Simulated assay, not measured.
Amino acid sequence: MRISPAIGMSLLVLFVGSTGVLGSDFKRQTSSSQAPIQPSFLSEFRFGLSAQDPWGPEGRDGSANLTGEILFAKPFTASDLFTSYFIPRPHVGGSVNVDGRTSFAYAGLSWTIDVTPDIFVEGSFGGAVHNGKDTSHPLSDRRDIGCSPLFRESGSVGVRLSANWSVMATIEHLSDGGTCSDENRGLTNVGARVGYSF
């Protein structure tokens, strides 16, 4: 059977085109399979320093903390940006006092809102356990912060330096919210943190 030149040319073009498409699909699959796999459950890691209770007895001599926090990915996503702001990220963290005063570990939820593409604000709420002493002596260098666990709230203002790195100023407060029978003056720390987003 003879094939006309026009049909032969059409078949050739079709063959070359299909191999090009297959080749591009293969490249796409190969490059995606070689891409590094990122842990989908982790969202961000933060570390920094804070001043311990600068307005109270634990901070009268300039006591400081080393802080660390892990934020996990949102449990689900929203189709629009506004709704996504109401979906929190779970977090766990800790604060170790370098002068042997009150240290604590905490967990809770964080809500992050973009003010501009580079600036964001954040609020968090959760609970904390601590090793603070329950003392109300006026000359004590420890804060009477009541029972354990406590409520913990924090607020931050941050700046994104790149796609992965950010810095933020943070204030946090621990209190029993009046749920304990003993005296509770709470504990307030202020500091700065560096964040790395996955």
Rank of each mutant, 00 (worst) to 15 (best):
M1Q: 01
R2I: 08
S4Y: 10
S4A: 11
A6P: 04
I7A: 06
M9F: 15
M9L: 14
S10Q: 09
L11E: 13
L14Q: 15
F15Q: 14
V16P: 05
G17L: 06
G17Y: 04
G17F: 06
S18D: 12
G20P: 05
V21G: 05
L22M: 13
G23D: 12
S24W: 15
K27E: 00
S33V: 06
A35K: 10
P36N: 12
I37P: 08
Q38H: 15
P39Y: 13
P39N: 08
S40Y: 12
R46G: 12
F47H: 03
G48Q: 10
L49A: 10
A51W: 07
D53R: 01
R60L: 11
R60Q: 15
R60V: 15
D61Y: 11
D61V: 05
S63H: 04
G68L: 10
G68E: 05
L71W: 08
F72R: 01
F72Y: 05
A73H: 09
A73C: 11
P75E: 03
P75A: 07
P75N: 02
T77R: 10
T77E: 04
D80C: 05
D80W: 04
L81R: 12
S84A: 02
Y85V: 15
P88V: 12
R89S: 11
P90L: 06
H91I: 12
G93N: 09
G93K: 03
S95T: 09
V98Y: 09
R101C: 00
S103Y: 06
S103E: 04
F104L: 05
A107Y: 07
G108T: 03
S110D: 03
T116R: 10
T116Y: 03
T116N: 10
F120V: 01
V121A: 07
V121H: 02
V121Y: 00
G123R: 11
F125K: 02
G126M: 12
G126R: 11
G127C: 09
G127H: 10
A128Y: 08
A128D: 05
H130P: 08
K133Q: 13
K133H: 11
L139C: 06
D141G: 09
R142F: 09
D144S: 11
I145Q: 15
G146I: 02
P149N: 09
P149R: 10
F151M: 09
E153H: 08
S154G: 14
G155M: 12
V157E: 01
G158Q: 03
L161Q: 12
S162H: 03
A163G: 15
A163M: 07
W165E: 02
M168H: 13
M168P: 00
A169M: 11
A169F: 06
T170W: 00
H173W: 04
D176L: 12
D176F: 06
G177F: 07
G178E: 09
C180I: 03
D182M: 14
N184V: 03
N184Q: 07
G186S: 04
L187I: 05
N189D: 13
V190H: 04
A192L: 07
A192Y: 00
V194R: 07
V194L: 15
V194W: 05
V194A: 14
G195L: 04
Y196V: 03
S197V: 02
F198Q: 08
